[in-house]
Design a protein around this nucleic acid. Structure first.
Lengths: 238, 238
DNA sequence: TTGGATGGGTGGTTCAACCAATAATAGATT
DNA sequence: AATCTATTATTGGTTGAACCACCCATCCAA
C-alpha cells in the first residue's frame, strides 16, 4: 500500500500581483460596479492606482480579455463587456469562489445532472476496445486514491465519446469537483458507493448499453448531489 | 427600415505580437510536438527565439496559462499540460479553426443537439414574466438582422433558465455559430425557418411547456445541422 | 462642406535591470 | 555513507523609462 502523502490542494501558489489585480477588476465588473460598455481607466492610471508597474497591469488585462470580460482597443481604451453575453466557463469557476451563497454551485450541479449522464450514454455508444482497456485498468486498480480514481474514471468515460467537446466539458466539472472531492470521499459510505458505480458503469460501457450507462451515471450524480446539498446550509431552495 | 451596414466580421484585429506567439506555441502543444509534462524553453530563450521582448513572451504565456495548456512554476520553468485532461472550452474554438476536416465541427453540432434542447426545457420551466417580455420584444422586432435576432433569442432563452452555466454554455455555441451564421441566413428558406422557430419557441416558453420547447429547439437544430453538413464535403462520416 | 494634416491620448513593444522562488550543488554534520 | 544545510545558478515576477502604432478630435485649407 502506498504511503498517503498529505496533499495540500491549492499548492500554495502565492498570488502573483497580476492575479490580484485580475481578481479586483473582475469582482468590480461582475458585481455591476462597472456597467457593460463602460470604459475602464487607462493602463497607466491603473498602474498608478494599484501602485504596480504597467507591465503587471497588462498581464492582468490579458487575463480579463481571455475571460471575455473586457475588450481592448488599441489606441482607444478598455471596454467592459456584458459577461452574460460573452463570458466563458472560467468565469463560472471564479463566480463559484466569490459566491458564498452556494447558488452557483446549485446551478452547476443542476447542469451536471443533465449533461454528464448524456456523456455516459454517448460513451457507451462510441467507445472503442482501447477505451475499455484503459477504463478497466483504472477501475480495478485498488491502490489508487479514491478521488484520483473517480476523476480518472470520469475522464476516461468522457474520452470514450471521442468528442472533444464532451471530453473538455467533463474536465470542467471535474476541476470544480476536485476542490470538494476530499470532503466527499472522507465519508466511507460515499467511497463505497463510488466503487460500486465504477464497476457498474464499466460494465454498461463495455457491453455497449447506453441507456444503462446513462441511468447509472444519473443515479450516482443524484446521490452525490444530495450529499453535497446536505453540507450546504444555504441550499434550501429546491 | 434601418440601413444595413456592411459588417465585417473579424474586425481586422491586426494580430498582436503576443497573439502570434500564442498561436505558434499552441499549435505545437496540440499537435503533440511537445509532450505533456515536458518543459518549454525559458522565457528568456523564447524572447530570443521569436526575437521579441520578454514582456511580450510573458503576455503570450499568460494566455497559454489561461487556456490550461501550460503550467508556470516560479523559479522552475514552464510545463506543458495534457489538454485532454485540463483543457478548457476556448481550446475548442482554437481547434475548430486549426482543424480543416470539420471533425471538430461535427463534435460541436452533436453536443449542441444534446445540450441546447435541454436548456430550452429548463427555460420553459424557470422563466419569469420579465423573461417573456424581453423575449417578446426581440421575437416581434422586424427590423433586426436575422443573425443578430437569432443570437439574441438564444441568449434570452438561456438567460430564462436563471442558471449561469446554461447562460454561458449557450454563449459558447453562439460564439461559434456567429462566424458561420451569415452563410446560413443568406438562404431565404433558412431565415424563414428560423422566424417560425422564434415564434414557436416563444409560445412554448411563455406557456411553460417544457416538452414543447425542447422538441421545437431540437427540431430547428437538426434542421440547421443538416444544412451545415450539406456544405461540408468532408463530413461524410455519420 | 469637404478633405487632409496635426497633436494628444491610448494600447503595444522594447530595453535593462532587479526581486523572489526553486532546484542543484557543494560542504558540513552525523 | 547518509543526511542535513548553506550556497549558488537558474527561472519566473516585477520594475522604470522610453518609444512605436493606432484612434480620434480638432483645426485648417481647398
Amino acid at each position: 500500500m502506498k504511503k498517503k502523502k498529505l496533499v495540500l490542494e491549492k499548492p500554495l501558489t502565492r498570488s502573483r500581483l497580476h492575479e490580484e489585480i485580475v481578481s479586483i477588476i473582475q469582482k468590480q465588473i461582475m458585481s455591476g460596479a462597472i456597467v457593460p460598455g463602460g470604459k475602464l481607466p487607462t493602463e497607466r492610471e491603473m498602474a498608478e492606482t494599484f501602485d504596480v508597474n504597467r507591465a503587471t497591469v497588462r498581464e492582468a488585462l490579458r487575463k480579463l480579455e481571455n475571460l471575455d470580460l473586457i475588450e481592448i482597443r488599441h489606441g482607444d481604451g478598455l471596454y467592459v463587456k456584458n459577461y452574460l453575453e460573452s463570458g466563458n466557463f472560467d468565469l463560472i469557476k471564479a463566480a463559484l469562489h466569490n459566491n458564498g451563497s452556494g447558488e452557483i454551485l446549485i446551478n452547476i450541479l443542476d447542469a451536471r445532472r443533465y449533461i454528464v449522464p448524456q456523456i455516459a450514454y454517448i460513451a457507451a455508444e462510441q467507445r472503442m476496445p482501447e477505451d475499455i482497456d484503459e477504463l478497466k485498468t483504472v477501475v480495478f486498480d485498488t491502490d489508487l486514491d479514491m478521488l484520483e480514481k473517480d476523476i480518472r474514471v470520469h475522464q476516461l468515460i468522457a474520452r470514450s465519446t471521442h468528442n472533444l467537446l464532451c471530453t473538455i466539458g467533463l474536465n470542467f466539472f471535474n476541476q470544480i469537483f476536485r476542490d470538494y472531492g476530499h470532503l466527499y470521499f472522507d465519508d466511507r459510505r460515499n467511497a463505497e458507493r463510488s466503487n460500486i458505480f465504477h464497476h457498474d458503469i464499466y460494465e454498461a460501457i463495455k457491453n455497449q448499453k447506453p441507456d444503462d450507462a446513462r441511468r447509472i451515471m444519473r443515479e450516482v450524480l443524484i446521490y452525490a448531489e444530495e450529499a453535497v446539498k446536505r453540507e450546504l446550509p444555504n441550499a434550501t431552495k429546491g
